[in-house]
Nucleic acid binder design. Sequence first.
DNA 1: AAATATCCTAGTGATTTAGTCAACTAAAAA
DNA 2: TTTTTAGTTGACTAAATCACTAGGATATTT
Lengths: 163, 163
Amino acid sequence: MRLTTKGRFAVTAMLDLAMRAEGGPVTLAGISERQSISLSYLEQLFGKLRRRNLVDSVRGPGGGYCLARPVEEITVADIVTAVDEPLDATQCAGGHNCHDDEHSCMTHDLWAGLNKTIQSYLASVSLAQLIEHHEARQRGDNIVQFEQRIGRITETTKHAIAH
Amino acid sequence: MRLTTKGRFAVTAMLDLAMRAEGGPVTLAGISERQSISLSYLEQLFGKLRRRNLVDSVRGPGGGYCLARPVEEITVADIVTAVDEPLDATQCAGGHNCHDDEHSCMTHDLWAGLNKTIQSYLASVSLAQLIEHHEARQRGDNIVQFEQRIGRITETTKHAIAH
DNA sequence: AAATATCCTAGTGATTTAGTCAACTAAAAA
DNA sequence: TTTTTAGTTGACTAAATCACTAGGATATTT
């Protein structure tokens, strides 16, 4: 899994979309203006999000984009992997194609574990949780840090390892 | 924290160094040959590792590099941050300089949490553990996956949050 | 002095990022 | 029906970054 600003832009845009999805389709022009992301760039990103079935598009006047699934069922990991396609290529970037060469892959399991850790973290945060977090912050509530989710990840991971 | 192949090269080189550090200083030429990393590139990396006090250097014939600390006290996080210097600059790359602007940082806490997660994982793995893991693999032992360390991270994190 | 090895700066080619531009299609409003 | 709105696609690009390389300077031993 790659981590670039492209992924961050996509998450920000999707969050903007999710927060005003009740009023029907949301235009990229609107997202562009509110989030200061260029329209053309958004078009590129949403092309990929649509192909991955994270959003649906409605053409013509009054059109725009809608979420293809409820906010609870779209995770940050979904969004990031949709726009930052794997393309690992680089030796040992998470693939399992290097068990013959001792030297280059002494650290293979280390990076594989890191990938899994990142993946688990991002998969543990949904759009719904981001919205909740943002609204809580606006109300001035005590902030529930996302770090606490690590606990939940661990349970899941332990479970996965046990089987 | 950035994650590039530069960091991976550095970890591989440090692991090579750690595994033959008992025979006195290890030359970069040797590491270059064994790990197929160019000498000039290694010089660049070890310049940074030395400035961060992870290795000590001995000049002249018979010289080379030694670990500046015991293998138990050098973590992967130490190595990666030494060679992949932060240079965040980009908005909200983990810094805390963006609490005034609502829009751009709706996702700030998310990425901050991710950074912390990555950092915790890499800080939980020492050179000693990498060596142990590598030797176990050569013996054909059952492999203890690094993923299991997540459990330990969680305890640490929970502790940190509680205070 | 000669050989060995680390130190240091600068540069370079390939790739990636973060877009732009332009042409097009579909749908709704006038 | 014409116009406008808005998504769809592909080609292109300036700037930055990555992964090195070149070449010399400096220190130490033989």
